[in-house]
Amino acid sequence: MVQITSALPIAKMVGSNRVVLGTGIVHVTGDAKLPPADEKELRRKLVQKALDALQSNEKQ
């Protein structure tokens, strides 16, 4: 499991082993300030990062 979250301290506290930092509490995998195309690109990168974490045995 990998957790994408914008509340990093909580993820650490409860002991999540794979954590990817999201873009904000109100839009974890998006950013309302960006134009749609850029927002989607950002989401692709975030999701890719999460998938990379799933394939790693390193705590992150």
Partner: peptide, 11 residues
């Protein structure tokens, strides 16, 4: 096999 869990809204 693999789940990304998405935590939002933790205030």
């Amino acid at each position: 096999d693999a789940e990304p869990a998405l935590a939002a809204a933790l205030r």
